[in-house]
């Protein structure tokens, strides 16, 4: 489930409020959005992909809330790791075109 909006990183663009398919976030004037409906989070990780500054973190547990430590997440490069893996960060664009699924799904 979504666990973190880094206040240090958030630019209050509210893209997460727009893209979350289950409407988990709530915009707040002159402030970062809040996680208003965590129970509706389906753990799809889409908000992380669309956050342009890697301010969000979705923990792996889809059933129960978890405690996360922002300092640790930054130290372990976990913030933004999925966006990077999918090739949506400026430095990882080459990842977009190297999908190896065909090696796994087509007859060998």
């Amino acid at each position: 489930m979504i666990e973190l909006i880094s206040e240090a990183r958030c630019t209050e663009c509210n893209i997460c409020v727009a893209v979350c398919p289950t409407n988990v976030f709530q915009a707040v004037p002159d402030s970062p959005p809040i996680i208003a409906r965590q129970g509706d989070c389906q753990t799809c990780f889409m908000c992380e992909l669309y956050c342009p500054v890697d301010a969000l973190f979705v923990a792996h547990d889809a059933n129960d809330p978890a405690v996360v430590d922002e300092g640790q997440l930054i130290a372990s490069a976990a913030l933004g790791s999925y966006r990077k893996a999918i090739g949506w960060t400026p430095g990882s664009r080459a990842q977009r075109g190297i999908d190896q699924s065909f090696k796994l799904t087509e007859p060998h």
Partner: peptide, 10 residues
């Protein structure tokens, strides 16, 4: 295969 999996479905 492991490497292909990582690139296929992060």
């Amino acid at each position: 295969t492991q490497a292909a999996m990582r690139l296929a479905q992060p």
